[in-house]
């Protein structure tokens, strides 16, 4: 008898429990029996095959219930308040903005975009580098096979989960009150975010490493530190560089909006021009952003391919 059953039987004795009428259980039992019959096939030679119970229908129902609940909460509530036709009539507003980004497009604005875009890229690069530098040692601390103590790696992993809960922008918004406005908080926010995701990706690789070579190098008379550098580091260096490049790709995009909370870069201009409805300028910024991301992604992808 396991712990759970023991606990249950202390309150009321087994016989008392059995006497009570249990309509729900009876109903479920009947349902289960019918389902089992439904899943059983008898072959011509008399053998029976029972198809395993499939959860997919149950799962779909759960998803459907959640969907309907959320739908009612947001979409239903919205159309209780506003007429559907108003919504339809306002759809062109969205397309109008898109159109104006194109028709009012003015290259002369380009000169104003270059500097903030460079700032944005610099924030992303520097933030990624700082985050990456810290992620490597912490990833080892989080790996159960390296630190041997499950408590240490568990605690480090839990802290990392906490770090990963916030998007870069939330970090920037908070840091803005501590360090004032400017690119510094953009760099710090990017660094913290990068640190969070990079460390996770790294320790997942480290935990699958074959550490037997470490033992072998230590047996040649090398110190633990040297054995570690020669046997473990080369095995994860490729993943580390490749993950770091991947983080740069993510960070370029996310640092473009950091200006909304005062972190500098192209985000401030997006904010201003949206407020002033200068959609042509937004168009210019988006084109610059598109090209920058394209270039950096392609360099990164090329390097990652060379690494693997």
């Amino acid at each position: 008898m396991n712990e759970k059953q023991k606990k249950r039987s202390t309150g009321d004795s087994e016989s008392e429990r059995l006497k009570r009428p249990r309509p729900v259980k009876a109903f479920l039992d009947r349902l289960a029996a019918r389902n089992l019959a439904h899943r059983t096939t008898t072959l011509s030679n008399g053998a029976t095959i029972v198809r395993p119970f499939s959860w997919s229908l149950t799962n779909s129902l759960i998803i459907l219930v959640i969907f309907l609940f959320f739908w009612d909460m947001i979409v239903g509530a919205y159309f209780d308040k506003y007429d559907f036709m108003i919504f339809v009539r306002r759809i062109p507003n969205f397309l109008n903005i898109l159109q104006k980004m194109w028709t009012e497009f003015d290259w002369s604005y380009f000169d104003f975009v270059v500097d903030p875009m460079v700032d944005t890229i610099q924030m992303a690069l520097l933030g990624t580098a700082i985050g990456a530098v810290f992620s490597l040692p912490v990833a080892f601390l989080a790996s159960a096979n390296i630190v041997k103590s499950k408590i240490v790696s568990g605690v480090v992993k839990t802290i990392l989960s906490f770090v990963r809960t916030f998007p870069t922008l939330v970090y920037a918004a908070i840091l803005a009150f501590i360090f004032g406005y400017g690119t510094l908080i953009g760099v710090l926010a990017t660094a913290i975010f990068t640190f969070g995701i990079l460390t996770k990706m790294l320790f997942e690789v480290i935990e699958t490493l074959d550490l037997s070579s470490f033992v072998a190098i230590e047996a040649t008379g090398a110190s633990k530190g040297k054995a570690f550098i020669t046997s473990v580091i080369p095995q994860i260096m490729g993943s580390f560089l490749s993950f770091t490049l991947y983080s740069i790709e993510i960070n370029i995009r996310s640092s473009a909006i950091l200006g909304y909370v005062g972190a500098g870069g192209v985000g401030i201009m997006l904010d201003e021009n949206m407020n002033w409805r200068r959609y042509g300028n937004i168009g210019v910024i988006l084109v610059v952003l598109f090209v920058s991301v394209l270039i950096i992604e392609n360099i990164s992808r090329y390097l990652r391919k060379k690494l693997s």
């Binding site: 460079v118 610099q122 924030m123 360090f179 004032g180 406005y181 400017g182 690119t183 510094l184 760099v187």
Partner: peptide, 10 residues
Amino acid sequence: SWETMDYGGI
């Protein structure tokens, strides 16, 4: 990239 860092707000 470091050149972008501005500590003015501290």
